[in-house]
Amino acid sequence: MDPIPGGREPRQQPLLDVRNLSVAFHDGETWGEVLTDVSFAIEPGEFVGIVGESGCGKSLTALSILGLLPPRGVRLGGAMLFDGRDLAKLSERARREVRGRRISMVFQEPMSALDPVFTVGTQLLETVRTHFKVGRREALERAVEALAAVGIASPRQAAAMYPSSLSGGMRQRAMIAMALVCEPRLLIADEPTTALDVTIQAQIMDLLIELGQRTGTAILFITHNLALVAESCRRMLTMYAGQIVEDGPVREILARPRHPYTAGLLGSIPQSSRRKSVLPSIPGRVPSLHEMPPGCRFAPRCAHVEPPCLVPQQLVSGRDWRKVRCRRAGELALPGAQS
């Protein structure tokens, strides 16, 4: 048994420490804040899942960490400490040295995420040569090794192929190989399996878990699919309307969610034991930027609203390693996942 739930080592310095991150976009007239007070940490080698509906700010959080937000019309607040350095304060040049080398990313659509006019091998060796002073041949050797490491059977042939001649699963493997070829400390995987067949999905998830354990790379896994998080992550974050609403070990959150939104997501997972009943869903929809409630952002859709919910909610740490953004978390007894 782990001494601490979720296996986190408390006194270790986190690999990535995001503090009060906020992102606002200018739409020509006003600023719309799309990320508000996002704080979380990732330990070295940890496998963390971020769950939430599309548009809740998961991908935006990832792009902010990498520094891939558009150059104009964006206002960034807060800090992102990576290995002790604040990424938000780095120059563009310094951020480029981090991107692909220390922090890398895998995207949702492997088809459109690879350049169609260069071979897979060229694109991988380009990544190597961007960050290391090595010759073409040595870079290609590393590229082939990386392709082999993600389970591509004949890596040398695959390296000579164009993305269009690979299958979807192979392409995503190549993307993962490209993300890991410089042995980064953190891999952000943004819906890496969503565009793939179910059987391929499982293979890619297994691959990510295995690579994370083997290389010690921490993985931030972004998905709307809570079931995938339940199977693969130790810790999870729930995001709603640009905020983190719950943070804690997956097993405990699944058993006893503290935020009504997490509980709602859990209730929406199809389960074989209740095959005959109607699949429950959360009523209403995510509020748009301009109609954001002043208090708890989930309040309009929540079944447990009371007067304390009408003021802004803070992400509060419990005595255990769990955090929740709900004043009523202590008094509610929300149903967990049935398994």
Binding site: L68, M105, A113, T127, M175
Partner: peptide, 11 residues
């Protein structure tokens, strides 16, 4: 999207 990938790998 592939240009976003290129930026993500540090080019």
């Amino acid at each position: 999207q592939y240009v976003r990938t290129l930026r993500a790998k540090g080019l």
